[in-house]
């Protein structure tokens, strides 16, 4: 896959306060639509983006547990909010505040997933970096991917239990600048 070949350059990219990065995938996570902001920020052409798996923009510093939680939540037909660090094809990285929702047809059949991404605030990114650093630390102690996911999930659950918050509440605390 192309994403794995891209080496992070350490250059941070941002987008407009009122811009939305939009993409749609089929139920397997293959990109079926990407808006102009998506293409510009991820430095992908429409040809490169459409038909690729969504992890084409996955950054190696993203904890696997967050994606596991994301897919588990979507499978329950629920929306999820997540702070995500993405990797553009030119090696630049960009933080997004993603809102991912399943799309259904009139009969309730799953059509795919829709993601709206907004520019996160600096304090929110700083707060979430700390959380993700702890998860990554746990995940990187494991050599096998399933073990890493499990270790990251366990660390996340411990952290939520310590704070007495659900994941949803934690994300909104961070968004509202009230993360403890």
């Amino acid at each position: 896959m192309r994403a794995t070949e891209v080496r992070p350059s350490g250059i941070e990219r941002t987008f407009g306060e009122n811009e939305l990065i939009v993409s749609k995938t089929d139920p397997r996570g293959v990109i079926t639509y990407a808006n102009d902001v998506f293409l510009r920020i991820s430095a992908l052409s429409e040809d490169q983006a459409l038909g690729s798996p969504h992890n084409i923009i996955r950054h190696p510093d993203m904890p696997r547990a967050v994606f596991k939680l994301l897919w588990d939540t979507l499978e329950q037909r629920k929306e999820i909010f997540a702070y995500v660090l993405n990797l553009a094809s030119d090696g630049a990285h960009y933080w997004v505040y993603a809102h991912v929702t399943p799309s259904f047809d009139r009969s309730g059949r799953l059509l795919g997933y829709h993601s709206n991404r907004r520019r996160p605030s600096q304090p929110a990114v700083a707060a979430i970096r700390e959380v993700y650093a702890r998860l990554l630390d746990e995940e990187r102690r494991q050599s096998r991917t399933p073990d890493a996911v499990a270790a990251g999930m366990a660390a996340l659950e411990r952290m939520l239990a310590e704070r007495g918050r659900t994941y949803d509440e934690l994300v909104w605390d961070v968004t509202d600048g009230g993360a403890r």
Binding site: L20, V22, Y33, N35, E79, H99, T101, H114, N116
Partner: peptide, 15 residues
């Protein structure tokens, strides 16, 4: 791009 942008915003509002 204009039409898709309009739909993206309506879509976002509805969701």
């Amino acid at each position: 791009i204009a039409i898709n942008g309009l739909l993206d915003h309506v879509d976002a509002f509805v969701r």
